[in-house]
Design a protein around this nucleic acid. Structure first.
Length: 599
RNA sequence: GGGGACGUAGCUCAGUUGGUUAGAGCGCUGCCCUGUCACGGCAGAGGUCGCGGGUUCGAGCCCCGUCGUCCCCGCCA
């Protein structure tokens, strides 16, 4: 028997046709001499009718059918009588009257039903992932993922990018994330590392003259997981020669537009551009969520006199922001919120200004009004004003921006808490749901307080601004050096990160030195790359975007597990195949490995 | 490494101040049913209350430990 149609395609136009459907029993409704089977495949569900008077044999087999049995149905499409249509189903105008039914395979009663929308617990879903993936929602997520990836691949190919693969088994580099290691059998005591990104290889491809490269590449990082972080994930990785920053922005905006088009969303380009410093000042974070209002400095409103009266530190900014649509809070709710926020500040020297109370005091009412005006607050909005207490230090270790970051974190925390009220995180399926922003001019270095060293904020192949090099800041003022590095941010999620690279060997060597790496050490780790730079390296740059995250946001999901077919748990375990697992003595011996128990 | 939430039937969950035989809905099994589409009706099965220890006359409930899942901080160039 050969399938003629899938389960989602039949309409009244096929009335009277003989068809063969195959699929899973989604539900069975047994009325005695009349049985309905909803037969499901990836494309949809069709109702099959088994009438004892039409085919006693088929009807008898349907009696034995159960949920998730795999069946084949030979029958005739019939337009449903008036009043019997099901407007909730795409195929609800017709049904298939079965003349023959085959039970192609039985199924044990599943631990949860793929037919149900209600989501079972993660543990069970992951253990029985094949059943979870049968659910309509998951089938849609992976269809979406495929469409997005295909759109990007097509777009980049049309723009002259070549898709080139790079090794999974490569060399460990101590910088950045922890590596996943692969022991070598042939070379005792030596290890390959799985790539955290194809960074160096794609730069080498530029040196090799490939002009434009891309890859939908798997990357591996052995770090702790989050809802938006899996140990292996997929990047849309690209690199090009002779680019300006804007060239790369243009390419990315192009393929994102194509990708969102594939998902039914029309985007407008160019996206907003914002420097890192502005992102910190306005949002307190390098990945601003622009769906909600920014923070606003209230320094003009808080005059020195008012600061004195209210015991506010003079030298530091006063920042306010608004969470829209929260509505009036009861006295207890307001007090609880105040205490919660103050508790969250610990003893870092920040406090809240209670604007509601200020209003009730004649001498502060004008200030309250001025704040409301500056923040453009509606009566429904929650107004938050953060003030540094007297004597609060301007710097927190090396970080002069700590106050912005702290308030920015509070902004996000409250935005999440009142998400139901303001509704701006809810998905409507229009462009308005997707707020893109380019964040540019990242700092070149960041201070590691624990190790007391400067590290590369992006990676050590990133080119600093030309003028910062000329001004000698690489040695004199590392904190002020800006990098030609940029992030693409969507709704507060970092989608991707890139930079214009260093293409001169002497500059690269200087950067390594500025990171405290001795020349011999740089040679030991990156000698091959420094060598390559000396053979005619063109200016080049690129970016990598997280495909999983793009699809997650498009799917309206809040975890990468919803868009990765076989993901890992928060402890990096695959519950279906039960990995990682011990290996045999024999394997260990071959790899020259021995386990030791650490006390 | 740290903080938080959760863990009771296959699934989703309830279980009062520690007190008799641990419940509900869905699912499952059997029987009945010719127009259902979350079909309906009747009957029934199904429990190591995550695991270990402790307190108590008595523990699903209290205490200690442990394991698992999820979320967050650290970490993620």
């Amino acid at each position: 028997m050969q399938r003629t149609h899938t389960c989602g395609v039949l309409r009244v136009e096929q009335d009277g046709q003989d068809v063969v459907l195959m699929g899973w029993v989604n539900r069975r409704r047994d009325h005695g001499n009349l049985i309905f089977l909803d037969v499901r495949d990836r494309t949809g569900i069709t109702q099959v009718v088994l009438d004892k008077e039409i085919s006693g044999t088929a009807h008898a087999k349907a009696e034995a059918a159960r949920s998730e049995f795999v069946v084949a149905v030979k029958g005739r499409v019939r337009r449903r009588q008036a009043g019997l249509e099901n407007p909730n189903m795409a195929t609800g105008g017709i049904e298939v009257v079965a003349h023959e039914l085959l039970l192609l395979n039985e199924a044990k009663t599943p631990p949860f039903s793929p037919a149900e929308d209600a989501i079972s617990n993660e543990e069970v879903r992951l253990k029985y992932r094949y059943l979870d993936l049968r659910r309509t929602e998951m089938q849609h997520n992976f269809e979406l993922r495929h469409k997005v990836a295909r759109a990007i691949r097509n777009y980049l190919s049309d723009e002259g990018f070549l898709e080139i693969e790079t090794p999974f088994m490569t060399r460990s580099t101590p910088e950045g994330a922890r590596d996943y290691l692969v022991p070598s059998r042939v070379h005792a005591g030596n290890f390959y590392a799985l790539p955290q990104s194809p960074q160096i290889f794609k730069q080498i491809l530029m040196i090799s003259g490939f002009d434009r490269y891309f890859q939908i590449a798997r990357c591996f990082r052995d770090e702790d997981l989050r809802a938006d972080r899996q140990p292996e994930f997929t990047q849309i990785d690209l690199e090009m020669t002779f680019p300006q920053q804007e060239t790369i922005f243009h390419v990315v905006e192009g393929f994102l537009t194509a990708a969102f088009q594939a998902a039914g969303i029309a985007l407008t380009t160019p996206f907003v551009r914002m420097t890192y410093d502005d992102a910190i000042k306005n949002y307190g974070i390098d990945k601003p969520d622009m769906r909600l209002p920014a923070m606003i400095s209230l320094t003009d409103e808080l005059t020195p006199e008012l600061r004195e009266t209210l015991k506010i530190e003079q030298a530091l900014p006063v920042l306010g922001f608004v969470i829209p649509g929260v509505g009036a809070l009861s006295g207890t709710a307001r007090k609880g919120l105040l205490e919660e926020v103050r508790g969250g500040f610990g003893d870092c020297g920040l406090d809240l200004l209670d604007v509601v109370r200020l209003k009730t005091n004649a001498s502060f009412a004008p200030l309250a009004a001025a704040i409301e005006t500056k923040l453009a607050a509606s009566p429904d909005d929650l107004l938050v004003v953060v003030t540094p207490k007297l004597g609060t230090p301007a710097k927190w270790n090396h970080d002069s921006q700590w106050i912005y970051k702290r308030v920015g974190a509070l902004r996000l925390q409250l935005a999440q808490k009142f998400a139901d009220k303001h509704g701006r995180f809810a998905k409507t399926g229009t462009e308005a749901d997707y707020k893109f922003v380019w964040v540019t001019d990242f700092p070149m270095y960041e201070w590691d307080e624990e190790a007391k060293v400067w590290n590369a904020a992006h990676h050590p192949f990133t080119s600093p601004h030309e003028e910062d090099i000329r001004a000698g800041r690489l040695t004199s003022d590392k904190g002020a050096v800006r990098a030609l590095a940029y992030d693409i941010v969507l709704n507060g999620t970092e989608l991707g990160s890139g930079s214009i690279r260093i293409h001169r060997q002497d500059v690269q060597a200087e950067i390594f030195r500025s990171l405290g790496m001795r020349d011999e050490e740089a040679k030991e780790r990156f000698g091959f790359f420094l060598d390559a730079l000396e053979y005619g390296t063109p200016p080049h740059g690129g970016i990598a975007l997280g495909l999983d995250r793009i699809v997650m946001i498009l799917a309206g999901a809040t975890s990468l597990r919803e868009v990765i077919a076989f993901p890992k748990t928060a402890k990096a375990i695959d519950l279906m195949v039960d990995a990682p697992s011990p290996v045999s003595e024999q394997q260990m011996r071959e790899l020259h490995l021995r386990t030791v128990t650490r006390s």
